[in-house]
Simulated assay, not measured.
Amino acid sequence: MFDVICVPVDGSEYGYDAAEVAIEIAQKFSSKIAAVHVLEEFSLNSYDSEEDSGDAILAKITKRADEVGVEVIGHLLTADPLRDMKFIVDQTRADLVVIHAHGANNNRFVSFDENDVSDTQIGSVSERLLRNSDVPVLLIK
């Protein structure tokens, strides 16, 4: 049913929860995982430290998937996650995206309830991907 499941991960617990769901789905459908970590274009940290952190995040997901026999292809990219996530998903040739509702940067939220913090609040990257993706998106809360 799903050949490639894309899971964007940012190192947050939310991201790892989404990866766990993606791995479970991949197990059931004999799918591959395209794990994506985006290094933000403009960061105050050194590129080397950002790259090391991204490699560690992808390695953690790959290790977990290996334990249950799921193949992971890691993608460490420099981009703007808000602007470029749809393009990145398209490039992985995914037929499903599993993404977390909230990310490491909890300051960027979109709420469907005006001026109210609620259960319907999701991160800006997730919201944009839900609106623009050409493939199904499974939002993990």
Score class of each variant (00 low, 15 high):
residue 98 V to H: 03
residue 32 K to Y: 10
residue 64 R to C: 05
residue 37 H to M: 03
residue 55 D to T: 13
residue 45 N to I: 13
residue 38 V to A: 04
residue 51 E to T: 13
residue 102 H to V: 05
residue 79 A to M: 02
residue 57 I to L: 08
residue 39 L to K: 09
residue 97 V to L: 10
residue 32 K to F: 11
residue 72 V to I: 10
residue 57 I to R: 02
residue 105 N to I: 04
residue 108 R to T: 07
residue 92 T to D: 01
residue 64 R to H: 11
residue 99 I to C: 10
residue 97 V to I: 11
residue 81 P to I: 06
residue 89 V to N: 02
residue 38 V to D: 05
residue 81 P to E: 09
residue 68 V to E: 11
residue 102 H to C: 05
residue 52 D to H: 08
residue 77 L to G: 00
residue 97 V to T: 13
residue 102 H to T: 06
residue 96 L to V: 10
residue 103 G to A: 08
residue 103 G to N: 05
residue 47 Y to R: 05
residue 52 D to M: 15
residue 95 D to E: 12
residue 60 K to P: 06
residue 62 T to Y: 01
residue 104 A to P: 00
residue 106 N to R: 11
residue 33 I to D: 09
residue 84 D to Y: 03
residue 38 V to L: 04
residue 34 A to L: 07
residue 77 L to D: 00
residue 77 L to M: 10
residue 90 D to G: 04
residue 57 I to F: 07
residue 69 G to Q: 09
residue 40 E to I: 04
residue 110 V to M: 07
residue 96 L to D: 05
residue 43 S to G: 07
residue 40 E to P: 00
residue 110 V to N: 02
residue 87 F to R: 04
residue 75 H to I: 04
residue 32 K to T: 09
residue 46 S to G: 14
residue 61 I to M: 14
residue 61 I to V: 15
residue 86 K to G: 00
residue 83 R to V: 08
residue 70 V to P: 04
residue 70 V to T: 03
residue 56 A to H: 10
residue 93 R to D: 14
residue 42 F to Q: 12
residue 41 E to H: 08
residue 103 G to P: 03
residue 75 H to D: 07
residue 55 D to S: 15
residue 94 A to I: 01
residue 63 K to Y: 09
residue 89 V to Q: 03
residue 32 K to V: 08
residue 74 G to N: 11
residue 90 D to P: 00
residue 88 I to A: 03
residue 88 I to T: 03
